[in-house]
Design a binder for these strands. Structure first.
Lengths: 364, 364
DNA sequence: GTGTTTGTTGCATACGTATTCATTGATCGT
DNA sequence: ACGATCAATGAATACGTATGCAACAAACAC
């Protein structure tokens, strides 16, 4: 379309002879510096063997003609692109920008970059995956539910290392990093019951999301064992509005809850707003609310949300470690790293002081 | 390091003969389907001339061996990578995830992807730019202050189309898309004064950021003209905490303001929390607060922030239009697209009803 | 039947860089 | 002074794909 080769007029005319306004290549630099193309390549490679003065000369020439190495050509040979794919489902949940921020900063210190794959909820999953694979990324970090993805498929189709972060898959041959969601659920149930709450409720996220399911399992198990009754449960879809709706529906119940644990912070904030503003309740006096993640907003004084903090930075460190381990040994058994989280006590939950001291729980 | 070529044992051994566990290429598909490599390429190219049954055969073979085209090899020839760089400074401000979300979804519908460049505030700018250029992206969208960047440099060094979004540069030869910040500042000052406020204050963002400067200029101009006095001004650094601090400092003044316009929403929320919780003031009764951007949180009932909405989706449409126009005509004069925003009336500002009807302002 | 058009296909080459190999000049030990 | 070692460099090739060109077959008009 914007190709303007006049292919017929001239018999043989190499691109070099045409004065095309196009990005300079290593050959252009070589010519300008009076060296070979290989020398230029070596000057731009970290361990490259070049005489210091030659390198200087080359770098000056490159600077002069605004040369920048072409990463794609390089990646053809080195088989490394320096790109890590981050697959994300719901980027409007502030937890994911935090992951994105941490991840991209960590990667940039080692010269790598994040390519973002923003999966819509209704996007066919096969398409999404092969979309990622085309980019020959060095690794794939999935922080999204990926509804209906068969992991067998994933590992078959993928020659790139994959790590699931904040997601697990039962008996899956994939590396995963996550918080100890089951223990956290138990911990929070105990915390609420120890502080005198009698009717804890749970607000679940997207149906089938492992994080929500695990937190619910731990929570429900303890509540059932200690009170003899199932906790009330509502669905919040992992969104603020979902939290609002869930709170409403919980309080349509004849015996509404006296405490609510939401599977993530953004839902907890929705719950809080609904309780206070729509239902006119006092938090934490009438109802205690606890979230999960510890996003920035949770600390704002208007909310002052008590929540269970995920160790984002450590999780990403682990994810990157798993990726690089798998690069050097593709056949290694998949690892499931489980990290401990931390309760962050603020004002949205009425908790007894005794228990507050024991704020850190250990990992399984 | 993980290269295991035994280069000495065998004289000549092409890669194809070695049974390397490596990604299949178009040649592998060609062999499997009994066609030439060119046929495979054509089968995977949109307008490619191949017989329908041949294409079918090829696609089946590709599927069978999990072949995925290598985008980097393709980009060497087509000179298009399908990647758009988004340069962002402060991703923890929810406004930018919103941009990121909108942008990546729009791009994905046309088969393009976002590569994120998350610039730290202290990162040397030259490094950052050549970091971007290495990727040969089809276009660069800058939504960051890029402190101290000389635009002359930028356009010289860059052979890729560049668009500044939510940023402008005085007399710059670069395409830009932004809201009419100056008019918005004037509009909001008039709005506050019309509603009986007498001492409007302004909370500025990062020093030198064009958006903040322009909004301030319009605001100050009207306040000065109509009240005869400069508005109070505090700095908020574009962050929540900055907004908190700015509110404090404004109210250390002997004659504190009766209304505050913050240059973005996240600061306005900090202002709100500081006023209500630290200073015990009633918003909007004692003080009116207005923000800018209309991020999701602004609508939450706890804040119900009156704010000036930026037309994010339209801004991104325009940015993409400018990019593609510049691809087809690199020498076109730079355009500065200015879009109108909309006032969003909520409860954080005490405004007279009459004015509220006239909520939409026109662009300059 | 011939000549012409149309539609498919394969061959060969180019994209920009990294890397192997051979060559050269320099350095060193003796 | 002389061979041996070493550092620096260039020539040539490969990475995986797209594409111009030629070859070819089929279809068609006459």
């Amino acid at each position: 379309m914007n190709k303007k080769n006049g292919p017929t007029l001239v018999k043989k005319l190499s691109r070099q002879e045409l004065v095309v306004h196009s990005k300079p290549t290593s050959r252009d630099v070589a010519r300008a510096a009076g060296v070979s193309q290989s020398a230029v390549s070596r000057a731009f490679t970290d361990g490259g063997k070049v005489a210091p003065e030659t390198r200087e000369k080359i770098l000056r020439a490159a600077e002069a003609i605004n040369y920048v190495p072409n990463i794609h050509a390089r990646s053809l040979i080195t088989r490394r692109t320096g790109m890590i794919a981050l697959v994300v489902g719901d980027i409007t949940n502030p937890f994911y920008p935090e992951i994105l921020d941490t991840l991209s900063k960590k990667l940039q210190t080692v010269g790598q970059r994040v390519v973002l794959f923003n999966i819509s909820r209704d996007e066919p999953i096969d398409l999404a995956i092969s979309g990622v694979l085309k980019y020959q990324v060095d690794g794939i970090i999935i922080a999204s539910a990926l509804p209906g993805i068969s992991i067998a498929e994933l590992s078959l189709k993928t020659y790139s290392p994959v790590v699931l972060i904040n997601r697990t898959i039962r008996s899956a041959p994939v590396d995963t990093v996550s918080c100890d969601n089951f223990s956290a659920g138990k911990f929070l149930a105990n915390l609420l019951l120890d502080s005198g709450h009698r009717r804890p409720a749970f607000v679940a996220g997207l149906a089938g999301a492992s994080t929500s399911v695990e937190r619910e399992r731990g929570f429900r198990e303890v509540v059932l064992a200690r009170t003899g009754k199932e906790p009330l449960i509502a669905n919040g879809d992992f969104t603020y509005q979902g939290g609002v709706d869930a709170a409403r529906s919980l309080f349509e119940n004849k015996y509404p809850p006296d405490s609510i644990f939401a599977a993530n912070d953004i839902m907890a904030l929705g719950v809080l707003d609904a309780l206070r503003i729509e239902l006119g309740l006092n938090v934490p006096k009438d109802v205690s609310v606890i979230g999960f993640d510890d996003i920035g907003t949770a600390a704002w004084p208007s909310y002052s949300l008590t929540t269970f903090r995920q160790p984002v930075s450590e999780m990403i460190d682990e994810a990157l470690r798993l990726l690089s381990e798998r690069i050097s040994d593709p056949k290694r058994k998949p690892a499931n790293v489980v990290l401990p989280g931390t309760i962050v006590l603020r004002k949205s939950a009425r908790l007894s002081t005794k228990r507050q001291r024991k704020s850190q729980i250990a990992s399984a």
